[in-house]
Design a binder for these strands. Sequence first.
DNA 1: GTGAAAGCGCTAACAA
DNA 2: TTGTTAGCGCTTTCAC
Lengths: 337, 337
Amino acid sequence: MPARIEDVAAHAGVSTKTVSRVLNGHPSVRAKLRVRIEASIRALNYVPNPAARGLAGNRSYLVALLYDNPAVGSSYIMELIVGVLQACKGTPYNAVLHPFEATDDLAAQIDNFVATHRPDALVLVPPHANNIKLLQRLDELDMRYATISSKLREPRIDIGFDERKAAADIVEHLISLGHRRIAHIAGLKGHGARTWRLNGYRDALRKAGIPYDESLVLEGDFTFAAGAAGARTLLSRRRPPTAIFTANDDMACGVMREAYERGLAIPDDLSVCGFDDTPVSQLISPGVTTVHQPCREIGRLAVESVLQSIRDPALRLQARVPYEMQLRASTAAPGKP
Amino acid sequence: MPARIEDVAAHAGVSTKTVSRVLNGHPSVRAKLRVRIEASIRALNYVPNPAARGLAGNRSYLVALLYDNPAVGSSYIMELIVGVLQACKGTPYNAVLHPFEATDDLAAQIDNFVATHRPDALVLVPPHANNIKLLQRLDELDMRYATISSKLREPRIDIGFDERKAAADIVEHLISLGHRRIAHIAGLKGHGARTWRLNGYRDALRKAGIPYDESLVLEGDFTFAAGAAGARTLLSRRRPPTAIFTANDDMACGVMREAYERGLAIPDDLSVCGFDDTPVSQLISPGVTTVHQPCREIGRLAVESVLQSIRDPALRLQARVPYEMQLRASTAAPGKP
DNA sequence: GTGAAAGCGCTAACAA
DNA sequence: TTGTTAGCGCTTTCAC
C-alpha cells in the first residue's frame, strides 16, 4: 500500500493540512517546515492520490484537447499532442483527447463530455476554436479554455503564430526566384488559416507590385484531392502559373501528383510551396518548400497557459510563437516560358 | 450542482447501493427495479462523478497508451489512438498517452508513472511490447496490460496482424509482375516487424523458387534516411535490383528520394513497395504499393480486451486482425535490363 | 502560520 | 435481492 498524506504528516510531525499546503504550493508554510515535509515526502515515496485530491478539491486533473475528426491534418494534431504532453509532464495533469464534429447538438455534446469527464481545462483547435456557439457554451459552464489559432477578435487565451506574415514570406521567396504568375490554392472558408494565408499572399504580391489576379486563386479544403483538382484547373490554362502556393502541405502533395501525371518536372517546370511543414513535406521528392508551423510549442504554451488560468481566471494571453521557413527543392527559378 | 447518487436513490425510492449496482452493471438487480432506476438517472440527468467512483473503488478510469518517442511512425501512433479513443467512447474510461524511452531506469519510470496517474490498464506498442523487463515489472505491479504486435512467445493479450503473410503477399505481387532481383530493406533489430517482414520476404522467394541472396537484404531503422542510404547502396551495384521492398513506408520514401536524385523513374526503372499504409504512401507520387496495417482496429481491440481483462484477469487473447494490400503506382513490370 | 474535524460522492463489506 | 454502514485519501472550512 502506498503512503498516504497521513503517513507523511506523522513522519514530519505536522498535521495533514500542512502537508496538503506544501503539496499545493500554498505560500503560508514556513520554509523550514516545508523543507522538512518535502524530505518526508521523498523518504516515504509519497505520491498524492489523484482521485482523492479530485474528489476533495472538485478537480479532475484532466486537460482535454478538443479537435475535429482527424481526417484533416492528423499529423498536425499529433504534433500538437506532443507539446500538450510536454506541458503536462511533471504536473498531476493528464491530457485527454476528444475528437468531435461540430453538429447541431454541439452544446449537448459538450455538456455530455464535460459532465462525464469533468475536465479542468480545455484546449480548442480550429475549427472549434472559431465556433462562437461552442465558446459561449463553455463560458456559461464557466470552463477554462485556451484556443489555438482562433480567428475571433478577442480570444481570452489564444496561441498561434503570424500566419499572414509567414505566407507573405513564402510568396516573397517565390518572387525573389523570379516568379510572377503565382497561383494560390486557399483553404476552407471559416478557417482563419484560409484568410491569413490568402492575405499574406496578397501582401507579398502588392509589395512586389504584381497585380492581384483573381483567376489564380482557387478554393480548397486542405485535402490532397483539392490540391490535385486545383492544379488540374490551373495547369490547363492557356498561360499556366509558374508557381503554386497551397494553404497546406497535403494540397501541395496534390499539386505534385497532378504535375507528375502531366509529366511536369518540379521545380523545373513548376515550383510548389506548401504550408505547415508536416512530415510528408520532407518525405516526398523533391522536398516541399514550406513554413514550419511550431505546433509543439503552440500545444505546450496552450496547456501551460490554460493551467495557469485555473489559478488566475483573469489571465489573458495572445501569444504568437516564432515560425521558420523551410526552403527545400520544390522551388526554383521559373523555366523558359 | 449536478445530481448525486443519493438524489437518484431518493427519486427512485431505493438505496444508493442499488443505484450503484445498476451503474456498475451488477446482475443482482431485478429487471423492474433496474428500469425504474435507469429512468430516474435520465430524469435527473445524473452522471457519476469519476473522482468519487475512483476513490471508493480504487480505480482511475484511465487507460494509458505507452509508446516510444514519436519520431518513428507518428502517424502509426495517431491511427492507433483513433482506435483507442473509439474503444473508450461511451465508457467512463479515458485514454492517456505516455511516450517514453526504454532507458536503464525503465522500471523507475514505470513505477513513477503508475504511482502518479494510477492507470487501470496499459496498452504497449513496440518496442515496449517486446520489453521483457518492462512486462515483468508490470506483472509485479499486478497491472493489466495488452500488447500490440508483440514478438514474445506467449503474450497474455496481444493484438496484431499476420505481418509475415502480408510481407509475403507483397513480394509475391512483385514476383507476379516479373521481378526476380528483389531487394529488401529490413527493419530495426529487436522489432518483431523486422523478423516477420523479412521472413515473409524469404517465404515468397522460396515459394517462387528464387534463391535467397543475402547481398540484397540490408538493415534499416525504419527512417527515411535509412531507406535513402539503403537505396544508394543497392542502386550502386553492378546489377541493381529491379524492385525494392522496404519494411515500412518511410523507408520506401527514402528509396524514392534516392531514385529521384539519380533520375530513375518509378515504376519504370525501379519498383518500390512499402509497408503500413501510412498517409504518406498516398500523398507521394507515384502512390506507394504497401500493406494497409489495420491500426485503428488494433487499437480498438487492444483497449476493449484490456478493459475486459480488468473484470476477468484470466482473459487471454491473441487476435490477428485482417489486413489489406494497397496496390498503387509505384510497382510495375520490370523494364528492359 | 498551523491544526482539528467535517465532508467530497461513491463503493465494499457485511447484514438483512 | 436489497439496505446499512463505514470508509477511500484528500482538501476545506474554521478555529487557534
